[in-house]
Nucleic acid binder design. Structure first.
Length: 829
DNA sequence: GAGCGTAACCTA
DNA sequence: AGGTTACGCTCA
């Protein structure tokens, strides 16, 4: 009986983003399963291509000519049915390609390479020297060059390696016509599995000498040495042995051929090192924590359970709760995933998990090398890792019996991917939790408005923890009005109150955290006389001043420019940096407090691997009085000795032209404040702002989440923002400004045309096309159209966008135009 | 988007 | 004829 498979082919284009049908050859019929990775011929040249089996069927639905599957690439299917369902769901949800989604769950380290090789035609393969001379005498010099290359490479060479010879293609074509050579596709299936070879005697040490005598085996002196060494050492790593005895590989091969030794490959695990250490502290759980744990534990095996939302104040010991739940899951044989916003920022919590659970804790994030990722992947599959801590991509880890997913600080924007597939980790986790009956737990001190709204609608089990773990009060937040400060004649970045408290803290041997949400020295550089502002040459962004090198740097593309003394416009010498960044805070703090020791933590000081952990270690060991940082310091840091937190400019984020700016401000103030007074010493917070009346600031200083939520949800409702509407952003970009604008308008017209044909004639739910707020990034001009599902069903809207931007892409858009579709984006800049 | 075939254009 | 390049059409 004939059988067919429907596969997704690895080819990086939307034009081949559909299921292709291949026939299964009789040989493979019994073994081929859904989820297998197979090799298929693809395209005119039948290039060997990796493909993924989505369906198996007995007959062809339509009359199409099919090719045959060549081979199955792995013994077992690499994907389960649920994995494929997830892929299809994500593709539809985020309007991306199959391959984008497959890449997320694809075994790390696997790779199929394909390449073309030139070799002699069959008849020429067993040539003798005489025949070869005959061929060589019959061809041109150029042709000879290529033949020589083939001979030098043992009769076969990759076409790629001949690229430096001019006009290769034609010469090859000629040789092919003369039937001297053939060109064919080959492939290699890499699995990047690092194995270590162990060597041992194939028999008992006492029997070796007899065996050698009886079988009259000759062994060289080096070989004897090796055998003697192995008599006293059971199993040795081959490289160690070679080095130790200064032996050669040849001796080993020879011994192996004589069947005197066994060679065995064993898995090797590359472990990412962590230099951050912490002592485990015993915490007595309070009743709120216990209740949360009991509730989640008791429902672990219930079907149809809702996800949980833990809304616990900063320092309420959410991590303890997570660990108890994970422990309980572990005892039931269930594995856990803990998502953290950005893994490099949480060495503290990772070390706490490792202290409690030891070797079964794995860490996964994008900064690992491909090899390390692969090893983690394999360790999960083999059950060596039972708990995985990682960034959003850790969701796709191949656990066999996943029972718990925890999303810590779930309000963080890092859970929304910015690149394809532009998925939201919370949504994906919900999908998985329903599919696999997983306990999903979201935790935060400042839940996002969207999710909290859903919790109030009954989509979550809402669990509140209102007491800090050690029953310490939350630090008091004191507001300083910077307008008044200016009236009093204080032009410094530091209010008088903050200066006094810093002095006090230092006197008491306590530590201080200062927060400012901008790195660099100053946020723009301008001429005071003519108003000229230094701009990035590639982006529509003003350059940030970095004092050490006297350069302006673009924080979008990395462009750098030395800042001249003279204004390039009016030649005056009044070029000055304006605004404040962390660098400047550090500098001014040093002028006020002469002997102060300062650590700075922002993207500039933590870009090197391990530098973040180093800064945290230094601060923990009290090698500095003050830690200055951007929003990096708001996430999960836990230092006993910090009593004072200074928020230098609380309204900085408020001015962002984004509907989430109030929410972000509230969250940052709450989170940063939560770094103070976490242990025995009482903490306090100084919050400096020009806008003392804003509801986000007023609510934050009273730790009034409910109040803030009520204020904010009204505004969201009035303007039709999330959670009341979905928003779809389509950004059209390219290096030709006019073309980009034209294409964006084209797209708008096409969509309006389609909508009209469906009887819709109110287009208020479409905003644009407009140039993006940042109209140019990296020489790419950007236009945007925003859609809200106000007046229209979301799936109809998505269907139309998909039709125009994907199906009919080549009709509506020019070839060198990029289109980026984002469902509920983080920001619309 | 890659790979392939083909048309068109240049060179000696 | 030999060499080079630009373009358009698939992809099961």
């Amino acid at each position: 009986m004939e059988k067919y498979v429907k596969v997704v082919v690895r080819s990086n284009t939307i034009y081949t983003d559909n299921l292709f049908t291949y026939q299964i050859p009789a040989l493979l019929i019994d073994n081929l399963e859904i989820g297998h990775r197979v090799l298929v011929p693809f395209g005119r040249g039948n290039k060997p291509t990796e493909a993924f089996v989505f369906e198996i069927s007995d007959k062809l639905e339509e009359k199409i000519k099919t090719k045959e599957v060549v081979d199955i690439l792995d013994e077992n299917p690499i994907f389960k049915i649920e994995d494929l369902e997830l892929v299809s769901w994500m593709k539809n949800r985020y309007l991306c390609t199959y391959i984008d989604c497959i890449n997320l769950i694809y075994p790390k380290g696997y790779k199929l390479n394909n390449y073309k090789v030139v070799s002699f035609n069959d008849d020429y393969e067993n040539l003798n020297q005489f025949q070869l001379q005959l061929i060589l005498s019959n061809i041109s010099n150029e042709e000879k060059k290529i033949i020589d290359e083939i001979i030098n490479n043992k009769g076969k060479i990759k076409v790629e390696k001949l690229k430096n010879i001019s006009n290769v293609n034609n010469i090859l074509e000629r040789l092919k016509r003369k039937e001297i050579i053939k060109i064919s596709w080959e492939y290699k299936n890499h699995k990047n599995e690092k194995k270590i070879c162990y060597i041992s005697l194939s028999m008992d040490g006492e029997d070796v000498d007899d065996y050698i005598l009886n079988h009259k085996i000759k062994t060289g002196s080096k070989q004897k040495e090796i055998i003697n060494f192995l008599k006293y050492n059971d199993e040795v790593e081959i490289n160690d042995l070679l080095e130790l005895l200064n032996a050669s590989r040849q001796s080993i091969t020879s011994l192996h051929e004589k069947k005197l030794i066994n060679l065995e490959l064993k898995d090797y695990y590359r472990k990412p090192e962590s230099i951050y250490t912490s002592v485990s502290k015993k915490i007595e759980l309070n009743s709120e924590q216990k209740n949360a744990i009991d509730k989640i534990k008791s429902q672990m095996f219930d079907e149809d359970k809702k996800p949980y939302m833990i809304h616990g104040v900063t320092g309420s010991g959410k991590t303890e709760v997570y660990m108890e739940i994970i422990d309980s899951a572990l005892n039931q044989g269930l594995d856990s995933i803990v998502l953290v916003p950005e893994i490099s920022l949480t060495p503290q919590s990772i070390s706490r998990f490792k202290n409690k659970f030891g070797e079964i804790v794995g860490v996964f994030h994008s900064q690992l090398s491909e090899g390390q990722k692969h090893d983690v992947y394999k360790a999960i599959k083999s059950g060596k890792i039972r708990i995985l801590i990682g960034a959003r991509s850790a969701l796709f880890a191949p656990f066999n019996s996943l029972g718990v997913i925890i999303i810590d600080e779930f309000h963080e924007s890092a859970y929304k991917s910015e690149k394809n597939p532009k998925f939201n980790a919370i949504e994906v986790a919900k999908f998985l939790s329903v599919k696999k009956n997983i306990s999903l737990i979201l935790g935060s001190a400042t839940p996002s408005i969207e999710e909290y709204y859903k919790a109030k609608q009954g989509e979550y089990n809402l669990i509140k923890i209102q007491q800090r773990a050690n029953n310490k009060p939350l630090p008091k937040i004191n507001v300083v009005d910077m307008k008044e400060e200016l009236n009093k004649g204080n032009k410094s970045i530091f209010s008088m109150k903050l200066q006094l408290e810093i002095q006090e803290a230092i006197k008491n041997d306590s530590q201080i955290i200062l927060f400012l949400n901008r790195r660099g020295y100053a946020n723009f550089i301008s001429c005071r006389k003519c108003g000229y502002v230094f701009q990035c040459e590639n982006c529509d962004i003003s350059l940030t001043y970095h004092k050490g090198d006297n350069i302006g740097r673009c924080h979008y593309c990395g462009y750098e420019k030395e800042i001249p003394i003279e204004c390039p416009e009016c030649k005056s010498k009044y070029v000055k940096p304006f605004g404040v960044g962390t660098q400047r805070i550090e500098e001014e703090l040093k002028t006020i407090f002469k002997d102060i020791k300062i650590l700075r933590m922002d993207k500039d000081t933590t870009s090197k691997k391990g530098s973040l952990e180093e800064i945290l270690n230094k601060f923990k060991n009290k090698e500095a009085d003050v830690l200055i940082g951007t929003q990096m310091i708001s996430k999960g840091l836990d230092f006993d000795n910090v009593t004072l937190v200074g928020i230098l400019s609380a309204d900085m984020i408020l001015k962002f032209p984004d509907f989430k700016s109030s929410e972000t401000t509230f969250q940052l103030i709450t989170q940063v404040s939560g770094r103070a007074g976490r242990s025995d010493k009482e903490g306090s917070v100084i919050l400096q702002t020009y806008d003392t009346d804003h509801y986000a600031i007023r609510r934050a200083i009273n730790y009034d989440y409910e109040g803030f939520y009520n204020d904010e949800i009204k505004i969201r409702n009035a303007f039709g923002y999330a959670p009341f509407n979905n928003m779809i952003s389509v950004v059209v970009s390219g290096n030709n400004e006019h073309l980009v604008k034209q294409n964006a308008k084209n797209m708008y017209d096409s969509i309006v045309y389609l909508l009209k044909s469906r009887g819709i004639d109110n287009f208020e739910f479409i905003l644009g096309p407009n140039p993006c707020t940042i109209a140019k990034i990296n020489q790419n001009y950007r236009w945007q159209i925003l859609f809200k599902d106000d007046n229209i069903e979301i799936n109809l809207l998505k269907g139309i966008i998909k039709y125009i931007c994907i199906t009919k892409r080549d009709v509506v858009f020019n070839k060198d135009i990029n289109i980026s579709i984002d469902i509920n984006p983080n920001s619309v800049l």
